[in-house]
Computed example of a mutant assay.
Amino acid sequence: MVEHLPVLNQAALDSDWGPAYLSIVPASLYGDVSARRHAFAVEGLNWGIRLSEPQVTSALVNFLSPTVFTDAGPRRCAALVRALYRAAGRMDERLRLDPLLATPGTLEVAAERRTGDRRIDIAIEWFDGPTTDKTSRRLVLIECKFDHHITSKQLPAYRQYAQRQTAEGGYALFLLLDRLTSRTTRSIARNKDWQPVTWLAVLRYLEQELIQEPDEGVEDFACLRRTIWNMAKNRTF
């Protein structure tokens, strides 16, 4: 909000908080809500059913895919990674985990990615450099939860997979939650290398990060984000 201080100061002097200031608040929190590409500008899916967790993650991966959306896919992946870090209140201190730095043709996004005898909900993987060994591999693993608990040994298994696939600092782990329970809190306490974030926080930051998104499938993607938002906002944290 620092950049808005001149407007705030003038509003205080004038004892008039609208309309100049009122337009700043939603923009700073949710991005440009007037844009047709924004999730709040469209209606969510209204099929009379609640999407399952695998349906949500599979649909999200479709819109992130650089194979399906050649121009928009990589930018959406990068926007999601930035949104995840912002929602977690963290930074990629080594500035290594940026899908836009991927060696051409190496960026992959997968739902239900096999990691040994388990499957991670979303995996974003690419190589950054001239080689294809673990020192150049980058990996972002996202375990998503809608109406499900974390199962025993789930998070350690995914972490071990990431450590086997990359060199130090080459991966990030995010736990994307629709709600917090005592069981989830205990799991987070035992797995401190996982960054817990909420769907609502990630979606809010994602709207801000998608301002420069190309127009490939933009309205359908916005519809999906609105659907997920509607699902998440009805959960109790």
Rank of each mutant, 00 (worst) to 15 (best):
I150L: 09
T67V: 13
N234V: 11
A111T: 07
G129R: 07
L175K: 11
R113M: 10
V109M: 01
Q212W: 08
R179T: 13
Y85Q: 04
V33C: 12
C223H: 11
A222Q: 00
C223G: 11
I211P: 00
A27Y: 09
S28Q: 10
K134M: 15
R190E: 15
R226N: 14
R94N: 15
L141V: 10
V61L: 00
T227L: 09
R76V: 02
R114T: 08
I49L: 08
L22W: 01
R113V: 04
K153L: 05
Y85R: 11
P104C: 07
R36G: 04
D14M: 00
V68A: 15
S152E: 05
A72M: 04
P66D: 12
T106K: 02
H148D: 15
T181S: 15
Q195T: 14
L173S: 01
T198Y: 09
Y158K: 09
V56G: 00
T236F: 07
S15W: 14
L206W: 14
G129Y: 08
L141R: 13
A35F: 09
I49F: 12
I228N: 06
A157T: 09
H38W: 06
L80R: 03
G105M: 00
R82C: 08
P6R: 15
T227P: 13
L200I: 04
P99K: 04
I188Q: 06
A59R: 15
L101V: 13
E108F: 12
P19W: 04
A35I: 02
Q10S: 06
N9L: 14
T106D: 05
L203D: 01
S152R: 01
T57C: 07
R75H: 08
W229G: 06
K134P: 05
C144E: 11
L224M: 14
Y205I: 02
A79E: 02
H38A: 08
H149Q: 06
L200W: 01
T57D: 12
L29T: 11
Y30W: 11
R137T: 04
V7G: 15
M1K: 04
D121Q: 14
A172M: 12
L210N: 06
A111D: 08
L180I: 05
S52V: 04
F127P: 03
D121K: 15
E125L: 13
R113S: 10
V68D: 10
G44I: 05
V197H: 15
A222W: 01
V68C: 12
S52G: 08
A189K: 12
P74T: 09
L175A: 05
L60E: 03
L203A: 05
P156E: 10
P6W: 07
Y205R: 15
R82I: 01
C77G: 10
E213D: 14
K233L: 07
A72S: 00
N191C: 03
F127L: 09
L177I: 03
R183F: 04
E209A: 10
R164L: 10
V33A: 04
E112W: 03
F127N: 03
V140N: 03
L155F: 12
E168Q: 06
V25K: 01
N234P: 00
F69N: 10
M1G: 08
G217E: 09
P156F: 06
A222C: 01
P26T: 12
L13I: 07
D98F: 03
S152C: 02
W194G: 06
Y85K: 10
R94V: 07
F146A: 12
D133R: 14
L173F: 00
I150F: 03
F237C: 03
L155M: 04
L203F: 03
L5H: 10
